[in-house]
Every structure is written in C-alpha cells, then in structure tokens.
Design a protein around this nucleic acid. Structure first.
Length: 417
RNA sequence: GUGGAAUUAGCUCAGUUGGUUAGAGUGCCAGAUUGUGGCUCUGGAGGUCGUGGGUUCGAUUCCCAUAUUCCACCCCA
C-alpha cells in the first residue's frame, strides 16, 4: 500500500458508522422538534466569503484555509466552518424575506489546514444551528436549550456550559483600550504569542492557556465587567432565562472564541474528559455578520458542535452507542436450491427484513460458520425437502432452538420476534 | 508552528549484538466422510520490516533525511 488517506483525514468504517448515524439522526430529531430546518450548502465557496465572514485576523483565515484557484482562475476555499456559507445562502436565496426568525441547522464537514492532534482533524464534521432575525436573549436561550436537550437525550453527563458576553461595537472599543492600558506595563510578563496578540487581537490573551495561571491575565479587566447598559441587560436576561429553564452554567469572562464575528453572548460546552480538546461545542451571537456580508443588518445566534469530539466524549463516558448489527436471517442453501433461496431472500428484504443468502461457492458447513460469524439472529436451511413442503425450520442462533414455519409465515414471524 | 515518542501481516506486537526462505497471537479462507454455527485440530493466503538515501561483502537491524501517527504546547470543533 503506497497511497494513504491524506494527513488529517480518516475513514469512518462500518464498525463506526452506526454510531455516527445514531448521533446525526438524534441531532436532526431534536432540531426538528425545535422547528429548525435543515440546510445544505456547497463544500467550497469563494475565498472572499471566509475572509470577510470569519475575519482576516483569525488563525483560520491567516493560515488554516484550503485555498485553490479553479480553472477559471477564481480563488476558492474549502469551508473552514459552516456559518459563513449558511449566511451567504440565507442572503442569496432571499430567506430574509421568509417569515422571521429563520431557524436552520446543518450537518457538514469542514476543512482546516492544521497540525494534527487528538480530536483535531484537517477534515472534521460539525453539526450546527443558525437562528436569524431575533436580537432577543430568548433566541440565545433557545439554541442553548436545544443543545441541553440533545445532550440529555444522548445520555451525556459531565458537560459544562460556560457563557460570557463580549459586548458590542458600542462598548467594546472602550473596553479594548482599557485592556491594552492594563497589559501595556506588563507585556514582558506575557508569553511571546500574547505579546504578538497585544496589537492584533488583545482579547485573545484572556483565552491563552499558557498564561492561564499568570496573575496578570487572571486579574485583567473583563469585558463582562464593562458592558454597556444594553449588553448588560441582554446578558442578565439570558441568565434569567437559563435559570428558568433549569440549566446549570458557569459565567466565564475569559471565554472569547476564535472567530471575529461574535457579539454579546458567547458560550462553550466543555468536557474534562477529552483532554486539551475539551471544547465540544462553541457558539454565540453574531449581530454584525450578515450586514458585513452584504445583507441588511440582521441579528443572529448559532453554534457548531464537533462530531468527532462528541463521539470521543460519549465513548469515554461509556455511553452505549449502536454498533454493527447482523442480519435478521441467513438462508443456507445448496447448489440446486440457491436460486430459490435468492428469491425468498429478496422477498424478505422487500418485507423490511435484513436478510442474506449464499452468494459464494461455500459449503454447507462454511455457510453456517459465516452466518454465526456475521451475527445472524436466525438461519433457515433451504434444501429440496423444504421447497417441496414449503416449510422450514427457523433456527435461533443465540440458543439453537428451532421452530417449524410455513415459508409464507417467515417474514411475519421474524418481524414479531 | 514548537518539543517528545513511535512506525515489522487486516489488527495487537515479538525479533535480529548487521548474515540464508522475518515470527507469534488474533482475524481471514479452506478442510476434519454425506444437511446444522460457537469449542478444538489441520492446512492456506497475507509483509518491497513507513519511504528515500548513506555506511557495509551484506541493512528490517547502524547513520541521515523525509512521511505518517500519537502525546504535550499553540489554536480550535
């Protein structure tokens, strides 16, 4: 084998796909009950969409995008996240003229050119929601409560919600000045990275893991302590609403998120079990993004949930997930009955039963072994006698018991047992 | 992007102080007298010892480079 999957990508094999299907179906189910509707958008977009949407100062745009020129010389980029494309589709297709708010959800893959690590891939999958057209904190509470229900139905424990407010264009500039004034005399005490961030994006210093124990960072002024009246009220209402819904959460003024478009509410669902990649889900409000991308000023709130990390977390908490299942029935046949077996097998499949018959040159004994190996729940042996009498002995593999059935009763019996 | 570890059969791993046809367990395929699986036994297939150079009479083994994976940072999902 010389050709291998590209770095940072991986195959999801049949042993795992049932768990993926389960999680995705559960997510769709919860979203539907919250009246979010699915949207599917292109895998690649014009590069400019992400430059403007995600933000030029972010790590994602600066060094992690899969960008290429197509044959027409246009710069295209494999999506590094879902929100920008969904916003583009919302504007392009006039969803802003549909009843508001618009509530959309998606399940899609993303691409970021990054150094590999546990729970971090260059192609990874996210499930997300975007809610367009409500500036009220009740909309924030709605997407957060969707996540709480989703996690609850999955049986996920020990996952903690952290929320923060990073203000709005009205109160953030004054705060950023305050923050810079605070850090300026202490620059030498910060890690090199943070010294660089000081000019570019001082907010991110608060989120630095390296300096997390640094007293300077710990004691830094936080945006949440310097919100304007409107932002403060918005945040207070959100807390009240979360309390009302009975959700536990922690206010963490150090959460800032890595994407430029957030305003006011930001939140993360964090696990302690996944190691350093503990953020399973991140989101927040982005009231300026739609206007930034050429639409009318429209408030919005959303989140993205990492499927790989969610599955890791479920596994580490020993949550039971579906695994490969064998067929309901395997039909053992002989060379002179193989055609009749194929016909019976087809009819069973048409009756919604998972069935398999012999499609190899295997001996009787080998067919029995195979049926056992793949976990068939029942087998029948179809020989000349069975065809003549139109009846079979249905054998339950778990305990070897057999019962005699008319061929015509096979589907019903299996369905009911 | 930084630091560390690893890479031998589909999987989990031995091994060679450098020396003929590189091993085990497991899995896969087949068989153990004619139509009943799991246990057991027997046989078979499957490896350019991650890739490329170098040293050497000879390299899977030593050296260099490179790729990939994992761990810790960075960042994020």
């Amino acid at each position: 084998m010389t050709i291998r999957a590209p770095k940072g990508t991986r195959d999801i094999l049949p042993a795992e796909t049932p768990a993926w299907q389960y999680v995705e179906e559960k997510y769709s189910s919860v979203c539907s009950r919250f009246c979010f509707q699915e949207i599917r958008v292109p895998t690649f977009e014009q590069t400019e969409l992400f430059q403007r949407g995600v933000g030029d100062t972010t790590d994602i745009v600066q060094k992690e995008m899969y960008t290429f020129n197509d044959k027409g010389g246009r710069s295209m980029t494999l999506r590094p996240e879902g929100t920008a494309g969904v916003v583009r589709a919302y504007l392009e297709n006039g969803l802003s003229s549909e009843p508001s708010p618009q509530k959309l959800y998606y399940i899609l893959n993303n691409f970021r050119y990054e150094k590999m690590g546990k729970g971090r891939y260059r192609e990874f999958n996210q499930m997300g929601c975007e809610l367009f057209g409500s500036a009220e904190s009740t909309a924030d509470a709605e997407v957060i409560s969707l996540l709480f229900l989703f996690f609850r139905e999955l049986g996920l424990q020990e996952i903690n919600l952290k929320i923060n407010s990073i203000g709005c264009p009205k109160c953030r500039p004054a705060y950023l000045e305050l923050l810079k004034d605070y850090f300026r005399p202490h620059l030498g005490d910060l890690c090199l990275n943070c010294q660089d961030r000081f000019e570019r994006n001082p907010l991110r210093i608060l989120d630095c893991k390296e300096d997390a124990e640094n007293e300077i960072v710990k004691n830094a002024p936080l945006q949440i302590e310097h919100l304007c009246v409107e932002c403060q009220e918005h945040f207070n209402k959100l807390c009240t609403e979360l309390n009302n819904l009975g959700f536990e959460y922690e206010i963490d003024g150090h959460i800032v998120r890595g994407l430029d478009y957030y305003t006011r509410t930001v939140f993360e669902f964090v696990s302690n079990n996944v190691g350093t990649q503990g953020t399973i889900c991140g989101g927040g409000r982005y009231d300026g993004l739609i206007e930034e991308l050429g639409g009318q000023s429209t408030p919005a709130v959303g989140f993205a949930l990492g499927v790989e990390r969610l599955l890791m977390e479920l596994k580490s908490q020993n949550v039971k997930l579906p695994s490969q299942a064998g067929p309901d029935i395997y039909i053992v046949s002989f060379p002179d009955t193989i055609n009749q077996a194929a016909k019976i097998c087809f009819d069973l499949r048409a009756s919604n039963i998972t069935a398999e018959s012999n499609i190899t040159a295997r001996s009787f004994r080998a067919q029995m072994k195979y049926a056992d190996r793949i976990g068939a729940k029942y087998i029948v042996v179809l020989g000349e006698d069975e065809i003549k009498s139109k009846s079979v002995d249905l054998k339950r593999m778990s305990d070897g018991t057999e019962i005699k059935l008319e061929l015509t009763d096979l589907a019903n019996y299996i369905r009911e047992n």
